[in-house]
């Protein structure tokens, strides 16, 4: 419909400034930090590849454990989740090239450093954390104080009505075009709000709860998360959730115009995808 009302607009490119310099710098530095944090985190996890719920470790009943068992003269990777057992040879528990199998929870390609080296994994983890946390705090303040949170990220009440259609359109890889692409849609807003204001603070606080000195400084951390081992499990789950966000985020970037999206996060300039008659929905 709008294509008929604005016939000229479809042919000329509309370029908008989508991301400020600070946002772009923050984005790429945070990508670097999160990759290092995730991979060094898996290295640290490998030192004791089990998760528990509560104040301490009930070694007989972990919520999750990744180990290796000898079956018919061969090591098999066994992952246990509650009462479930899975053979995960090749990925979890036992991995590496055939004939030179290594018994380790997460495989060498997923950890930083690659070989088993807890002391070095910790150094990478804490160094990246010292970059990630101040950047996160600065960015959240920038969003809140600069008004960007309200203008760009908080959903308007009217938006919720279209949640269903938006979801179906996203699953069919049909994304808002033209004027509708000028602002984040509801799904983007919800995803970014969850990551920035829920997952990121949660991953930091559950990480701090694992520090015995921080537990002495802020004993409430233990009460909020139900104990140090619960906090460790939540920390792991946050990392899984952030990884899931990463996968979806990158897929959406790839599916909705990789060059345009990448350019907008590098130079700040974003070309509004033109409205297309072929994509025009006659029922609307």
């Amino acid at each position: 419909m709008s294509a008929m009302h604005h016939p000229t607009r479809d042919r000329s490119k509309t370029v908008i400034r989508r991301h400020s310099l600070f946002t772009r710098l923050w984005h790429w530095l945070t990508v670097l930090c999160l990759v290092i944090l995730l991979m060094s985190g898996l290295q640290i996890f490998n030192a004791h590849p089990a998760l528990y719920w509560g104040k301490d470790s009930h070694f007989d009943s972990p919520a999750l454990s990744i180990g290796a068992e000898r079956q018919d003269g061969e090591w098999r990777g066994i992952t246990q989740l509650g009462g479930w057992r899975f053979d995960t040879t090749g990925l979890l528990g036992v991995s590496g090239p055939e004939g030179d199998r290594d018994r380790r929870a997460f495989p060498a390609w997923a950890t930083l450093p690659g070989p088993r080296w807890l002391a070095m994994g910790r150094q990478w983890h804490f160094l990246a954390a010292w970059l990630f946390v101040p950047l996160l705090v600065a960015y959240l303040l920038y969003l809140v104080i600069g008004g960007r949170l309200r203008r760009r990220l908080l959903p308007r009440t009217t938006e919720w009505r279209h949640l269903g259609t938006l979801l179906i359109d996203h699953l069919r890889l049909r994304f808002p075009r033209g004027e509708a692409a000028r602002h984040y849609n509801l799904l983007q807003k919800l995803a970014y709000l969850t990551v920035l204001f829920v997952l990121a603070p949660l991953v930091v606080l559950t990480g701090l709860t694992m520090s015995p000195t921080m537990d002495a400084a802020w004993p409430w951390l233990l009460d909020v998360f139900g104990g140090r081992q619960s906090a460790r499990t939540l920390h792991f789950l946050c990392a899984v959730a952030l990884l899931a966000f990463f996968v979806i985020h990158v897929s959406m970037v790839l599916a909705s115009g990789v060059v345009n999206n990448l350019r907008s996060m590098i130079t700040g300039r974003y070309v509004l995808p033109p409205e297309e008659e072929s994509r025009h929905d006659p029922t609307s």
Binding site: A47, H48, D56, L118, P212, R228
Partner: peptide, 12 residues
């Protein structure tokens, strides 16, 4: 008190 090992486990 709770003993926290560098490996990640805890014991009281």
């Amino acid at each position: 008190t709770r003993h926290d090992c560098v490996e990640g486990w805890s014991c009281i």
